[in-house]
């Protein structure tokens, strides 16, 4: 495959909308279900993933000509694991409270299918610059997905946003219960599907 011809903004929006990692590709859903009880958690883990995605994408794009094809996958894994360790150490040192909340999920970024997938399909064939924008788009897509879920769950479950009281009551405590993460992701996906179906229907109606 030749290097991408897409522009920067196309690369950026590709990750945020049409290939949103959580709602469209249905990859890396464990943290989307597990820790989106507050917006803050979603934001922080999103930032961590963004960091790993961008840095490993750039690293692989920079050294792509020196990677022997037979050790391609081990190199990817090593790169991702290194950057995950770096962000894990930094978060543990400078944001200990938030780190405690996210628990094991920061370390588990290493097993995220989305990052390996982008390295395999994009970064190893493109320049550092376009890999950077692609990683940024994918990371932002993940971050926004996490924040949306966190927003819905925190607002409906606790009546707060970023820890500040907004509604004054707790409308549906159910939403902060751990199991509700599954329902939230399910409903969100259904909404995305609905929009897509409606869009396609209107397009075909216009054409005929």
């Amino acid at each position: 495959m030749p290097a991408t011809t897409k522009t920067t903004s196309q690369l950026l929006f590709n990750g945020i909308l049409s290939e949103n990692p959580i709602f469209r590709l249905a990859l890396s859903m464990c943290p989307a279900v597990g820790i989106t009880t507050t917006v803050m958690n979603g934001l922080l883990l999103g930032v961590a993933v963004l960091f790993v995605q961008v840095f490993s994408g750039c690293t692989i794009a920079a050294i792509k000509n020196h990677i022997h094809p037979r050790i391609r996958i081990p190199t990817y894994t090593l790169t991702i694991a290194t950057w995950v360790t770096v962000i894990d150490l930094i978060l543990a040192a400078y944001l200990p409270d938030a780190y405690k909340q996210m628990g094991i999920f920061v370390k588990l970024i290493v097993a995220f299918a989305i990052i390996t997938m982008r390295l395999e399909t994009f970064a190893c064939k493109n320049t550092v610059k376009s890999s950077f924008w692609d990683g940024l788009g994918m990371g932002l897509g993940f971050l926004l997905g996490m924040m949306t879920l966190g927003f819905v769950r925190e607002l409906l479950g606790m009546g707060t946003l970023f820890g500040y009281d907004v509604l004054g009551v707790r409308p549906l405590l159910f939403f902060v219960l751990p199991a509700a993460g599954f329902f939230c992701v399910g409903f969100m996906m259904a909404i995305f599907n609905y929009v897509e179906l409606a869009y396609n229907r209107s397009k075909t109606a216009k054409q005929s």
């Binding site: 249905a26 329902f183 409903f187 996906m189 599907n193 609905y194």
Partner: peptide, 13 residues
């Protein structure tokens, strides 16, 4: 709209 993954998520929930 629920076919495939969305309904699977609800069941898992």
């Amino acid at each position: 709209t629920y076919r495939g993954l969305p309904i699977a998520f609800v069941v898992a929930g």
